[in-house]
């Protein structure tokens, strides 16, 4: 008989262990079905969270073989195909405190969420009595970001949160800031965006894992790009991230490619570069990885590149 073998990471507040469960394979079942079956029929001490069973409450995020999924909407057959095995390892979502087994703590995240003022700061055009007018186009801008169900999959997958000390904001928090910044009924987008900038907005490493795994298909990295652009428009051009972006922008516009020798200087300034990057650069020169004397020339087709710049500028107007 075919069977599932689940290896579940358990935790009781003090001890951690991995427990194995085996039960008969059934087709067309979800991840949540399997966890519920284990709790009901094999081991009542196993804990996880779930509620709606149809991908709207955001309770059932879990990691399987290192990737995060929403348990109730993920077919086991798909997981088996992805990993080519019926032996699966379950862990709680990453980048959260674990309470017990697969149950994580949301409380600290809500403290962090509050930084971006995650509520509408109404313009004077609206009132409690009458509400607002909003066009269909204006509504469509906030349609996708308000799909977020706070399931935490993005946080669990975030490459920056994995290494960061905890200041960097979780993708769903950036989404919230974006959602209000874009709402035509909100009169203070800066109040949502400034805290984002103050909390390492530029540290997103574009690993795209949040977007790839978001069960609601929210384009989180597009939003991060938007937030960055907006902070630059707000005048926040003199920070590492913005300078880095401008360096890219200027170089490519000028010669059609990056000047990697100058990039760190433009981004971090001369002093910091000497302190932080020169030792590494010296090693790279020594190993023949870079040539300090190479100054990039204009690439062929630079005219085309400039046209693209012009076009992009027009479009973004």
């Amino acid at each position: 008989m075919e069977k599932f073998i689940f290896r579940i990471h358990r935790y009781d507040g003090t001890t951690k262990w991995v427990q194995e469960y085996q039960f008969p394979y059934e087709e067309n079942k979800t991840v949540l079905w399997a966890l519920t079956k284990i709790k009901d029929e094999i081991d009542p001490t196993l804990n996880f969270t779930s509620a709606c069973r149809h991908a709207i409450c955001g309770s059932c995020g879990v990691r399987i073989n290192g990737t995060s999924y929403l348990g109730c909407k993920t077919p086991l057959d798909e997981i088996i195909e992805t990993f080519d095995s019926k032996m699966l390892t379950f862990e709680p979502l990453k980048n959260y405190d674990v309470i017990r087994d697969l149950v994580i703590d949301w409380k600290p995240k809500m403290k962090k969420l509050k930084l971006v003022k995650p509520w509408l700061i109404p313009t004077e055009e609206g009132s409690v009595e009458k509400g607002f007018k909003q066009t269909e186009q204006e509504f469509s801008k906030i349609a996708s970001p308000t799909d977020c169900i706070l399931c935490g999959v993005c946080t669990s997958e975030c490459g920056q949160l994995n290494v960061n000390d905890g200041v960097y904001l979780d993708p769903f928090i950036l989404n919230k800031a974006y959602r209000f910044a874009l709402d035509s009924r909100d009169g203070s987008s800066n109040e949502h965006i400034q805290p984002v900038l103050d909390n390492e907005l530029w540290k997103c490493i574009h690993c795209m894992q949040c977007v790839t795994n978001c069960p609601k298909g929210i384009p989180l990295t597009d939003q991060i790009a938007y937030l960055r652009k907006t902070t630059m428009k707000m005048g926040a051009k003199d920070n590492q991230g913005a300078r880095h972006a401008y360096a890219f922008y200027d170089d490519v516009k000028k010669v059609g490619r990056l000047n990697e020798m100058m990039l760190p200087i433009k981004t971090d300034g001369m002093v910091k570069t000497i302190g932080k990057r020169v030792p590494m650069a010296a090693r790279m020169v020594y190993k023949g990885k870079i040539n300090p004397l190479h100054m990039p020339k204009k690439v062929n087709g630079i005219e085309g590149i400039r046209k693209i710049y012009k076009y992009a500028q027009e479009v973004s107007k």
């Binding site: 509520w119 509408l120 409690v128 509400g131 607002f132 269909e136 509504f139 308000t146």
Partner: peptide
């Protein structure tokens, strides 16, 4: 409903 609108509920629009 107007109150919910003022609270930021993203209603579809006509």
């Amino acid at each position: 409903i107007s109150e919910l609108d003022y609270y930021g509920v993203p209603f579809s629009r006509d």
